[in-house]
Structures are given as C-alpha cells and as structure tokens.
C-alpha cells in the first residue's frame, strides 16, 4: 500500500472478476480476471479480434457482460475515453472547434461557443498541438491529427480514469510523440489509464502493467515479468489455434 510520503493516486483501481461476454452465441470473453492498480498505466495487448475493445466497452458499462467489474469510485471521478475512430461523412462542414464545442456544451455548436469553454477547448487543443488547426474541418485531418483531437476531447474535463482504445493505430510520428508526452504528464498526476496498445516497444517503455487478452487472460503482470519473447510469441501464435477451435 501507499507510504505516507506519496501522493495518493487520483485515479481509481479497477478489478475484473470472472468477466465473460457472449454476443449472438459467440464467446468473446471468458473468465477474464485481473486488477488495474490505482494510478497505474495499464496496457492491454493481444491479437486482433481477441476481445480487447469489448473488454473496454464492458468496463464502460456498454456491454451485457457477466462477472464483475469493480471500479473503486470516489466522489466526482471522471472518465475520459479516447475512441478509435469517429464515423462521419468526411465532407461534413464540422470544424475541430465545432466538434470540441459539441463535447462541452448543450447550446448548439452552430450558434456559438460559450466564453467559458473557449479557453478550455483551446488549452486542450494546445496540449495535443492542434490549436493552430482548430478551424480545419474534421474531414481534412490526417489519421494522426484526428487521433490527437480525440485525445484532446478526453482531457475535458480532466480525467481521473483515462481509457484509450488504440490511439496509436495509424498515427504519425509527431502525433505519437505528442500523445506519449501527455500520457507521461497524466502518469505523473497518477491518473489511472487503461490503454489498448499494439506497440510492444512503447508498452515496455511506458506501462506499469500489461495484460494480454485473447478471449481469456493469457498473461498479466509488469512488462519486465511478462513481456518475454517466448510469452509474446505464444500469445500471438495462439490466435490460429483458438480461431480453429471456434469455427464450426
């Protein structure tokens, strides 16, 4: 537990106990149990289609999962969520500022951005170095820029628990660096983070803990303990065996 000298983490701890998920008779997750410590940066890795995103959606209460997911809430805990993509028509005239305004206020974004949100939005965009592109249309952004905007929205209001669904996928080098920097700042503030990440090098460098999911927990622990060549090899080669078992 905490020593007296340390600041208490601002983020909650999360406990997954025997979490299962079955959609249209297909088992997506089975007996998933592990713990995310308060204030930890916890990465989820695993092969594609292994149920990582489903696990995150279960954590957000958006899936009919079985078992128990306990988030150790305190009053006013806020969750930030960085989705993988936005689904919209790329020719829509919606600017970055419009999008951020829609996140913040109920008054329609086409009327105006309320004064008290202007600075908040600007600061969040500055953190991801997108403040100069605030008047760009969402459809004109590159994949990396879009991810940075999605990251910026998760910072309003400042989160205690941040859930990231592969923000690194398809991102450019500048974007990756910007996001790494913010994640380090959030880590210092002891925000709990659950991050789906495919970049094993990044996981090794930054994560406090890592869990590999492929329908079940294949392994879980600190990166030094579990990210051995043998285990990673096993995890990703398990894809084929399990898929074969699933097919009729």
């Amino acid at each position: 537990m905490l020593t007296k000298n340390e600041d208490p983490p601002r983020g909650p701890s999360i406990c997954f106990e025997m979490v299962g998920l079955c959609l249209s008779n297909i088992t997506i997750l089975q007996d998933v149990s592990f713990t995310v410590k308060a204030g930890d940066m916890h990465c989820l890795i695993g092969p594609n289609g292994g149920g990582k995103t489903s696990l995150i959606l279960s954590l957000l209460g958006q899936m009919p999962h079985t078992g128990r997911i306990a988030i150790n809430w305190t009053d006013g805990t806020t969750i930030g969520y960085v989705p993988q993509v936005l689904d919209f028509d790329r020719t829509l005239p919606v600017t970055v500022n419009n999008f951020m305004t829609m996140i913040c206020q109920n008054m329609p974004a086409f009327i105006r951005t309320k004064k008290r949100y202007k600075d908040i939005i600007n600061n969040a965009l500055r953190l991801v170095s997108m403040d100069t592109k605030a008047e760009r249309r969402l459809g004109e952004l590159s994949g990396g820029e879009m991810q940075r905007v999605l990251f910026a929205q998760a910072l309003i209001p400042f989160p205690d628990l941040l859930i990231l669904d592969e923000p690194g996928a398809g991102i450019d080098r500048i974007g990756a660096r910007v996001i790494e920097e913010i994640i380090l700042v959030l880590k210092k503030q002891k925000v709990t983070m659950v991050w789906i990440n495919h970049d094993l090098k990044q996981v090794r460098q930054m994560a406090d803990a890592v869990t590999c999911i492929h329908k079940q927990v294949l392994f879980s622990g600190t990166p030094e303990e579990v990210l051995t060549t043998e285990k990673v090899f096993q995890a990703f080669s398990a894809t084929t065996t399990n898929v074969r078992r699933d097919s009729p």
């Binding site: 959606l57 957000l60 958006q62 969520y81 989705p83 993509v85 936005l86 689904d87 919209f88 919606v94 999008f99 305004t101 829609m102 996140i103 206020q105 109920n106 008054m107 329609p108 974004a109 086409f110 929205q153």
Partner: peptide, 15 residues
Amino acid sequence: GFYNRMVLSSFNPNL
C-alpha cells in the same frame, strides 16, 4: 436542446 448530442451520438455512440 439536443442538437449537439444528436450529432455526437451519430459520430461515435460509445463516446
């Protein structure tokens, strides 16, 4: 009253 929220729901329902 619901303009922003309707647009956001179509952009990404999970978010």
